[in-house]
Simulated scan of single mutants.
Amino acid sequence: MTDRAVPNLPSRDFDATVAFYGGFGFEQDYRDEGWLILRRGELTLEFFPFADLDPASSSFMCRIRVDDVDELYRSITSAGVVEKTVGFPRVHPVVTQPSGLRIGNLIDIDGTQVNLIENPAP
């Protein structure tokens, strides 16, 4: 197994989290009353229950780094997540940053910001 770090994110409702992330390719890998693991290829997201989370004031955040950020972004918008500047869920388009990295953002149903970052070409 390769060394790795895995985001540990809040979920107000595991069923809703599975449905939301499942819309763009994440599949449930493990679940019990206190833990949820979703996978999409090599990507892994883990969730813990946080029923009282206020999405509007959430400060949770993680980054997903992929080889094809446009494909991931299309999957998210095809699942019905729309581009907008407030509310959740929402996405912000992929743009090239001054660093040269291409980055978009997803705000999930629980207010967690997920940066969508394209791996630099070798």
Rank of each mutant, 00 (worst) to 15 (best):
M1R: 03
T2A: 12
R4T: 14
R4Y: 12
R4I: 08
A5L: 13
A5V: 14
A5D: 04
V6Q: 05
L9F: 03
L9G: 06
L9C: 08
P10G: 13
P10M: 11
S11W: 07
D15P: 04
D15H: 12
A16P: 03
T17E: 01
F20G: 02
F20M: 05
Y21N: 03
G22N: 13
F26A: 11
E27V: 15
E27P: 04
E27I: 11
Q28E: 15
Y30D: 09
D32C: 12
G34C: 02
W35R: 10
W35C: 10
W35S: 13
L36V: 12
I37Y: 06
R39S: 05
R39T: 13
R39Q: 12
G41K: 04
G41R: 07
E42L: 06
E42C: 02
T44Y: 02
L45W: 02
E46G: 06
E46C: 15
F47R: 02
F48I: 06
F48G: 09
F48L: 08
P49R: 10
F50K: 11
A51Q: 14
D52F: 03
D52I: 02
L53T: 01
L53F: 00
D54H: 01
P55R: 05
A56C: 07
A56I: 06
S59Q: 14
S59V: 14
F60R: 01
I64F: 02
I64A: 11
R65C: 07
V66S: 10
V66Q: 11
D67R: 14
D70Y: 10
E71A: 15
L72D: 00
Y73N: 01
Y73S: 01
R74E: 15
R74G: 10
S75H: 03
I76P: 03
T77R: 07
A79D: 12
G80A: 10
V81C: 11
V82K: 14
E83N: 09
K84G: 00
V86S: 15
G87D: 07
H92K: 13
P93L: 05
P93T: 09
T96G: 02
T96S: 05
Q97P: 00
G100H: 10
G100Q: 11
G100L: 09
L101I: 05
L101N: 11
L101D: 14
R102H: 09
R102M: 08
R102E: 07
N105M: 14
L106R: 00
L106S: 04
I107P: 00
I109Q: 09
I109R: 11
D110F: 00
D110M: 01
G111K: 00
G111T: 00
Q113I: 12
Q113S: 13
L116K: 11
L116G: 07
I117R: 12
E118W: 13
N119S: 14
N119K: 14
P120A: 14
